[in-house]
Design a protein around this nucleic acid. Sequence first.
DNA 1: GCGACACATGGCACTGAGTTCCCTTTCGTG
DNA 2: CACGAAAGGGAACTCAGTGCCATGTGTCGC
Lengths: 245, 245
Amino acid sequence: MTVPKPPMRDALVAAAFQLFLERGYEQTTVDDIVALAGVGRRSFFRYFPSKEDVVFPDHERCLADMTGFLGRGGDEHDPVARVCDAARLVLRMYAENPTFSVQRYRLTKKVPGLRTYELSVVWRYERALAEYLRRRFAGRPDGTLRADVIAAAVVAAHNNGLRSWLRSDGESDASAEVDHALAHVQRTFTPGTSDTSDTSDTPDTRGAGPGEAAAEDVVVLVSRRGAPMWRVVQELEATLERRPD
Amino acid sequence: MTVPKPPMRDALVAAAFQLFLERGYEQTTVDDIVALAGVGRRSFFRYFPSKEDVVFPDHERCLADMTGFLGRGGDEHDPVARVCDAARLVLRMYAENPTFSVQRYRLTKKVPGLRTYELSVVWRYERALAEYLRRRFAGRPDGTLRADVIAAAVVAAHNNGLRSWLRSDGESDASAEVDHALAHVQRTFTPGTSDTSDTSDTPDTRGAGPGEAAAEDVVVLVSRRGAPMWRVVQELEATLERRPD
DNA sequence: GCGACACATGGCACTGAGTTCCCTTTCGTG
DNA sequence: CACGAAAGGGAACTCAGTGCCATGTGTCGC
């Protein structure tokens, strides 16, 4: 699909970040960047539509990945779990280059222009999630409202975990942070799961195997009452997917 | 505190919107605006730090109102209700000038730069709400996470209602739309209120009521195998939450 | 009445981002 | 070898935003 690697793009990103880190974003002009990279000024704007874009070089690809992932999401998945998994795609991109992500985080934290640009990027992720949920909730009363709220909550939770990881300079466990935050959201919006029983890790559910079902397409699940809902779902899914249909 | 009315500011806003509406935002230069307003170019940037700011002339004041409102919010209020009321302050500002709000809505919908700018404005509202909730939730486990998620949900709900009103050209009842949306959020995040009375058209699961459970804390669920997982969960939670503990 | 001072405004001139147009190089492919 | 399509380079332009200074215009103290 995409060409493996345009070397010029990477050279521009490298040159840009070198200058951004040593003299700051606003103190660096595009001419400085192209001079260091040894290319023409016009070429910069061929690869990046704006100066801000060079700070977020792979968000475009990641957004495409997410829409593709959500496009493949059929009715067999829980919508909320699906958008949580979609959010994890973004985390994965950040986690692939921890040092780069931490440097960028420090940049965006102090440069208002970059913060604003990041908002527009995050907004596009949120819209992708919301559009998916709107499709899944179509027809239901308050479907679009639920979709918008859940998408916003998922993004907020993801960012909360992500920022916590970035503040630790990439030392903490990014997946654990985000999983924890997303579990909170999933618990909140997958109704019936109490919001209070926080972080119990013991999986106290026992799914009855498919063989134990009485009729051919009936499954019986036995669970302790206090169990966190996502654990139940996890167990149930694990049991069910052994016989997908 | 603030001077009642600088006439020059209003003249600039009026001139700007006249031109924006008749030839578009990007086709209008700052020189065009100041020429129509009959003032010097330098004065424009005295009143508005950027060209985008002229589109959102009163958000700064509204944001100050919100932070003041939240600063006055003592412990006697429910935090979630408080931030919902804070969000209503923003709606009130929009509702004060319906035609202006609708025109601006149409502008921001088609100009990406204005959309991005609006995001940065909304972000500041969201941060104000989140900071307030973080204070209220301080000490609680996952306090900042809950604060961020609720703030995002409130903003999303508010915007959902607001946009619905704006799309109706200001014909519908703005307060009713936003109240409905915020009530949904408040129901979701205020413990004890259920989110469940939600449509569920054909639930092909039958949960055994808690009374039918053999032991005191075991629940038995019987479900058709082909049922989508999220429907099962929905039914399960509906059954479970009838006895929250 | 008169200088002093603050303040609002206007008028440049400058930086820097982003674009338009055009030229050169390079690399296939017939 | 010819030729055409990309890929890159580069001058010149538009426009947003800033700095600096000149010019009113009011008010206060004397």
